[in-house]
Design a protein around this nucleic acid. Structure first.
Lengths: 232, 232
DNA sequence: TGTCAAGAAAGTGCATGCAATCGCTATGCC
DNA sequence: GGCATAGCGATTGCATGCACTTTCTTGACA
């Protein structure tokens, strides 16, 4: 899924950034895992220069950590920092929901509600994969509905960094239905323009996701490659 | 201020990033101004490679804009985006103040109040430069007091991007004293653990700064180099 | 046997060079 | 005279190569 020729399509580096970011965000690359330039260059069939540039981007995005003269690793996130990101996420979503309640256009409100109702079917069917799509879309609508590009960017960035830790939450029994109900509270508040209510509902929603995800985060202590010491 | 040898001190690129970011944040480099790699390389006495890497960082930070095959420019910030950043800033500071009211340790509260009282002298003396130092320190204490590293980072980043547009605010007559009074409301709320009050006070404070700064932002439409068309 | 040191290997940091692309200018055609 | 197109200059994008730093390994000595 990578050795493609990329036919000199304007932004080779950008594609690499997205590709690597994807691998990190989806958990394919584990925190602490080494990212040596040579291997990546070979993997993507480019020279080390664009790799270095991509790592520069990723480092500034906080996805990778770069130790001078010691190479790059996938950013290691401490429990404490993870908690702080979830808490930030709750606050950011609260802001988006509050603003959405105040500022969404009629069209935005209508399509938010329609999509939300459509996602109810996924809950009935227990279709987790499909619900996840609606879930993502739902939150994106909140971010856009806030009509504030900078908040939007901060929220999307934070959310993407939390993605690896949110993935497993829907495996908890009954989480799907509860998630939908929480969304419902948010939608209802937005529809009647209740900014404070929407904010609180969104904050609570994310807090619950946070707790649900924390379960999995702690279960998975640190099984990366650990090659060196095991080799002798 | 730049041609120094940098004696291979671990992070040549990082120093460039900071140097260029400083020039942008302090307004020395204007939005829209061209950043061609060759000139920067000559200016810093390095080759184009680290320059490119530094621009990669800055681009990811949002300080410069990079058009594929067309070079980099200092990020142009539209009025709309500027407004969204100020609004975000108000919300972020509100969060920090709220959390600070709930979480600051005794020592943090004491030193916050002490510094705040000390800054009162600067107001009496009309020492704008010195007050600016206390002002920055005051806000930093709020960010740290929130005890949330991610919120801290988001806030610091946003604040630095707004720096060029905040600079002139203290030139407004009476702004110094008003600023101190606004700080006082925040401090009082924090000292008595009034989270909601602290949040609101901080939001209002930033909103006022926003309006004060907007005056100057609009006065200064766009006087960069505009070389091309003026040349014939 | 454990610790320390020196050498080697690996990998990063930066410089240089070449090819591709973009914008501008000049020339030709309508 | 205006518009389209081809050529040119400037600049970016990427590959390659070398020097320096770090780390691993091997050997010597206490």
């Amino acid at each position: 899924m990578s050795g493609k020729r990329l036919v000199r399509s304007g932004t080779t580096v950008d594609q690499m950034v997205r590709a690597i970011a994807d691998r990190i965000v989806t958990g394919y690359l584990r925190p602490g895992e080494r990212l040596d330039e040579g291997s990546l260059a070979a993997r993507f069939d480019v020279s080390r220069t664009p790799v270095r540039e991509a790592l520069g981007h990723l480092s500034a995005m906080g996805l990778v950590e770069r130790r001078p003269n010691r190479g790059a690793i996938v950013a290691v996130i401490t429990q404490e920092h993870l908690a702080s990101m979830f808490e930030s996420m709750a606050e950011l979503e609260a802001i988006c929901a509050r603003f959405s309640a105040e500022r969404m256009t009629g069209a935005e409100r209508r399509s938010l509600e329609m999509e939300h109702q459509a996602s109810a079917r996924m809950v009935q069917l227990g279709a987790e994969e499909d619900y996840e799509y609606f879930n993502t879309e739902f939150h994106s609508r909140l971010y856009r509905g806030a009509h504030n590009t900078h908040i939007h960017d901060l929220t999307v960035t934070t959310r993407s960094r939390l993605a690896p830790f949110r993935r497993a939450q829907f495996m908890l029994p009954g989480r799907l239905a509860k998630s939908w109900q929480e969304h419902d509270v948010i939608v209802t508040a937005i529809m009647r323009g209740d900014a404070a209510g929407a904010g609180k509902a969104a904050r609570d929603h994310v807090s619950i996701v946070s707790e649900a995800s924390a379960v999995f985060a702690t279960v998975d202590p640190m099984p990366p490659v650990l090659s060196r010491s095991a080799r002798r």
